[in-house]
Write a protein that binds this DNA or RNA. Structure first.
Lengths: 233, 233
DNA sequence: ACCTGAACACCGTTCAAGT
DNA sequence: ACCTGAACACCGTTCAAGT
């Protein structure tokens, strides 16, 4: 419920140094590890959404006994936190200084990549605002802040600028991810709207629930925001 | 999971015309009704969040037998849909034509009221993008579309404009609602950040996780978006 | 038409126990 | 150190039954 920030490092071993790097003997599954757990959790989430992730199923998919997971993670919440952050890694443009003229492109690239990463894992966008801020998420925020700062945003305005962009990306992606899953539903909804009433003529005329250029709308809105946040000279 | 649009009118009676308007005899509870169910659901959600709403608890709070609810609603999903929409009613400015110069104020008023309504019920913002579009939500979208249209937005751009504003409001409110619940957590997170690393100097310097003027930032970003969507002459 | 309790099929998590 | 099954305390929902 609460937004717990900071690192996601648990009390349990993140790495074991002594163990041979997972030598697979026979057809048996490799040993459990946080990496394997997270990777499989992402697969299940991709396949069946947030509700599709159950601890028992996750263990089963890993070929492990039902309750083995609880040695590696504290609870299901932690699985969500780790899966979310694992999906948001950013390999951006080279980390060396961004030339003055390039800041706008750098921001666009990072935010569009962010959105694309989340749309590849449609469960992730709705999770992001409620969960812990893992290292990959913090990396993106740090990068965003640095670029904006380099682009000339005053320190006093920096938080406002970062959060405005965050809010916009989150909102656009959550909406898109949810509507994306249900083209049929949306068509049906638009149908029902037409039937339902003359109370919503504008929505109906605009066919609000259909035929949207989400990607274009996203870029346009982002342009507007950036124009406002960092006026072009 | 899917965004089911359209009305939320179930197959069950929305109103009973014949029954006396709920004459309460003695200390006994009035009869169950969708209205009472929804009102109590909102109370529980306000008190304990999305996870705090359980069908048994809801029935108990209504003084009804555990399973009586299922005659009135199909399932828990429907309770969410109804509770959400019930919280988003808009009594806006008088419905007569808005003068040309007033459109910006009208949009601001409606969207700030929307955000405020959701912040009063912090569970509602995260629910909005995933649930059915009830009549109150559709009303707001209709109104938004009408004002934008009157303000001069071309039909071809109308959907993009509506969704941009929707996305921004949703994103801003979800973020705010979640961070709002946990001032202590955020302070702790910022602490941990400082400890954690020199990897996030910008975030740390800006104290991103603290001291934010959320309301001001919301208005500012909204201004930028509107400037872009409907250029001032 | 409206309400009810018992019962079913789950779930997350704890715990004492194994190796 | 790592894994396990049995068991607990829940849930949403169905159903046959009441009035």
């Amino acid at each position: 419920m609460a937004a717990k920030g900071g690192g996601a490092q648990g009390k349990r071993p993140q790495r074991r140094v002594e163990s041979v790097p997972s030598v697979q003997q026979g057809g048996s599954e490799p040993a459990l590890s946080i990496e394997r757990i997270v990777a499989t959790a992402v697969e299940l989430l991709d396949a069946d959404g947030v509700d599709g992730l159950k601890m028992r199923r996750l263990a089963e998919s890993l070929g492990a006994g039902a309750m083995s997971l609880y040695w590696h993670v504290d609870n299901k919440e932690e699985v969500f936190d780790l899966a979310l952050d694992s999906v948001l890694e950013y390999r951006g443009p080279p980390p060396r200084g961004i030339e003055a003229a390039e800041w706008r492109g750098a921001i666009f690239h990072m935010l569009e990549d962010w959105r694309a990463s989340m749309l590849r894992h449609p469960w992730s966008a709705s999770l992001l605002p409620r969960r812990a801020l893992g290292p990959n998420i913090l990396n993106r925020l740090e990068l965003l802040g640095r670029i904006l700062s380099d682009a000339g945003v005053a320190d006093a305005d920096l938080n406002g600028a970062i959060w405005s962009l965050w809010n916009y990306v989150i909102g656009a992606t959550i909406t898109r991810a949810n509507f994306d899953l249900s083209d049929d539903d949306m068509a049906a909804a638009q149908q029902r709207l037409a039937h339902l009433s003359e109370k919503y003529p504008t929505i109906e005329r605009a066919r609000l629930l259909l035929d949207n250029d989400w990607d274009g709308a996203f870029r346009k809105g982002l342009d507007f925001l950036l124009d406002g946040l960092v006026p072009r000279q």
